[in-house]
């Protein structure tokens, strides 16, 4: 709760900057619209206005400034416009509607969760292999790192196209891109977590002549739980990004990515912005959910920080 005030301060600062930035970003569009609507604008000639700087134009035409916040197709929408658009597409339309962000959100979220599950399972499996097999440690880890240096934007269309060619479409290709992004933090975190027991802990098990399997279930796995949660929080947001990226290159008709693309291509910045914010809110909610799970689990395990 101590973090509320600093967080709100930052939010207020961003909102303030955003609100101020709307005026210079949109003033030319607003002035053109005003001129068409028989309002006297200085300079009156449209081409002459292009030569005038945004701030000068705003200062010369204070009456136009309020209009910069109400444009239908602004360069930068005002915060209140985004809020209204979010409200309209989340609460004011049926969740089954093609305009509903709930509908698009579920399309993206289902791919996110499937990919996250796949990525987490793969990450844990690889980490166990890496910790118990020197061969895997030497062979898998460099590839895991290399896999993350390939820009996902280049890789995603290839995955979609290749899978489409063998007849797999829809959820699974997007989930694979999600898994591709989310397995890596899990591998790194779990390898660190499974190796976190110190020499003394391992010696203690040796004095009991415990086998590797007992060491894994009784010591290494429980000791890795805090590391796992740190990884899951990174992994879930990476998964969401992966699912959205998976929707971008293919002309997908549904999902946050599709909405962002539609808004861009049809000149509806409010649609893009609303989808962007909805995605950010979803990511925050998912990370928050895992943070809560983490707190409850670690507390029950007596490992709360």
């Amino acid at each position: 709760m101590k973090s509320v005030l600093p967080v709100l301060t930052i939010v207020a600062f961003i909102l303030g900057f955003w609100t101020l930035a709307v005026v210079p970003m949109n003033i030319h569009l607003a002035a053109d619209q005003a001129a068409r609507g028989d309002i006297v604008v200085e300079p009156a000639d449209a081409r002459a206005r292009q030569e005038v700087g945004a701030f000068a134009l705003a200062l010369g035409n204070p009456a136009v400034i309020p209009m910069t916040y109400t444009l239908d197709r602004p360069r930068l929408p005002g915060p209140q416009q985004v809020v209204v658009e979010l409200w309209n597409t989340i609460f004011a339309v049926a969740p089954t509607s093609n305009r509903s962000l709930i509908y698009h959100g579920w399309v993206t979220l289902s791919a996110t969760l499937l990919g996250f599950g796949m990525g987490t399972a793969l990450g844990i499996a690889l980490a166990v292999g890496i910790v118990f097999s020197r061969t895997m440690d030497l062979s898998v880890m460099p590839w895991a790192i290399a896999s993350q240096t390939i820009p996902i934007l280049a890789l995603a269309p290839m995955i979609i196209v290749v899978m489409g060619a063998i007849g797999i479409q829809g959820l699974l290709p997007k989930a694979i891109i999600s898994a591709y992004l989310s397995f890596f933090p899990v591998v790194v975190g779990m390898v660190k977590g499974l190796r976190s027991p110190d020499t003394m802990q391992l010696d203690l098990l040796r004095t009991y002549s415990a086998g590797p399997a007992q060491g894994f279930w009784k010591l290494r796995l429980p000791a890795s739980v805090p590391y796992l949660f740190a990884s899951l929080k990174i992994g879930i947001s990476a998964s969401l990004v992966g699912a959205i990226v998976g929707e971008l290159p293919t002309g997908a008709r549904a999902g946050f990515g599709a909405r962002m693309l539609v808004g861009d291509q049809y000149g509806q910045p409010l649609v893009t912005w609303a989808a962007l914010f909805a995605a950010a809110i979803t990511a925050a909610a998912l990370v928050g959910l895992f943070a809560l799970l983490e707190r409850v689990t670690l507390k029950r395990m007596g490992m709360a920080a």
Partner: peptide, 10 residues
């Protein structure tokens, strides 16, 4: 051992 080394989750 020098440290108790009890498992915090047990």
């Amino acid at each position: 051992f020098q440290a108790a080394g009890l498992y915090p989750w047990r």
